[in-house]
Amino acid sequence: MKSKLTLRLDESLIRRAKKRAKQKGTSVSQMVADYFALIETEQPSINRDLPPITASLTGILKNKEVQEEDYKKHLEEKYLK
């Protein structure tokens, strides 16, 4: 069931949001809904303190065994060869 939500925002922010929505081929309502869905599935609070690029990389090696020796080998190959 969809319900109506009223937001009070700065006029300039509304204009920018409408412009961005038009560029993306969507509505401001859909952008807000997407944002709410995103924050609902947000990663644990530890990632909130990290820069966005770092937070986006956390967990990508979950199922891979990476040892210190692997890293040292990588550095040797990158910088000593």
Rank of each mutant, 00 (worst) to 15 (best):
residue 52 P to R: 03
residue 65 E to I: 12
residue 36 F to A: 11
residue 25 G to T: 08
residue 79 Y to G: 06
residue 27 S to F: 06
residue 8 R to S: 08
residue 33 A to D: 09
residue 8 R to W: 01
residue 41 T to K: 11
residue 48 R to C: 02
residue 47 N to P: 00
residue 54 T to N: 02
residue 3 S to F: 11
residue 30 Q to F: 08
residue 64 K to N: 06
residue 75 L to R: 11
residue 49 D to Y: 10
residue 56 S to H: 10
residue 13 L to P: 02
residue 59 G to A: 03
residue 26 T to A: 04
residue 58 T to A: 06
residue 18 K to D: 15
residue 49 D to S: 09
residue 77 E to H: 03
residue 41 T to Q: 14
residue 27 S to V: 10
residue 65 E to Y: 08
residue 50 L to W: 10
residue 48 R to L: 13
residue 27 S to Y: 07
residue 39 I to V: 15
residue 58 T to S: 03
residue 24 K to Y: 05
residue 66 V to N: 08
residue 60 I to S: 07
residue 69 E to P: 01
residue 63 N to M: 05
residue 53 I to S: 07
residue 59 G to W: 04
residue 24 K to F: 04
residue 42 E to S: 07
residue 14 I to N: 12
residue 3 S to L: 11
residue 54 T to W: 03
residue 48 R to V: 02
residue 8 R to G: 00
residue 41 T to A: 08
residue 65 E to H: 11
residue 52 P to I: 02
residue 24 K to I: 01
residue 29 S to E: 03
residue 18 K to V: 06
residue 17 A to G: 10
residue 66 V to M: 12
residue 44 P to Y: 01
residue 65 E to M: 10
residue 40 E to V: 05
residue 37 A to T: 09
residue 80 L to T: 02
residue 12 S to Q: 12
residue 48 R to D: 10
residue 71 Y to W: 12
residue 12 S to Y: 07
residue 16 R to A: 14
residue 3 S to G: 07
residue 26 T to V: 08
residue 28 V to K: 00
residue 43 Q to R: 15
residue 55 A to L: 03
residue 53 I to E: 14
residue 39 I to M: 12
residue 19 K to D: 15
residue 10 D to N: 14
residue 38 L to H: 09
residue 58 T to V: 15
residue 43 Q to Y: 07
residue 7 L to I: 12
residue 37 A to R: 15
residue 65 E to S: 12
residue 69 E to N: 13
residue 16 R to W: 07
residue 2 K to A: 09
residue 55 A to W: 00
residue 59 G to V: 03
residue 56 S to M: 12
residue 64 K to I: 14
residue 9 L to Y: 03
residue 36 F to E: 14
residue 38 L to G: 08
residue 10 D to Q: 14
residue 26 T to I: 05
residue 62 K to I: 06
residue 60 I to V: 13
residue 77 E to F: 02
residue 25 G to Q: 10
residue 8 R to F: 02
residue 48 R to F: 03
residue 45 S to H: 02
residue 42 E to A: 13
residue 49 D to W: 11
residue 12 S to L: 08
residue 38 L to K: 13
residue 38 L to P: 00
residue 7 L to R: 05
residue 37 A to E: 15
residue 14 I to V: 15
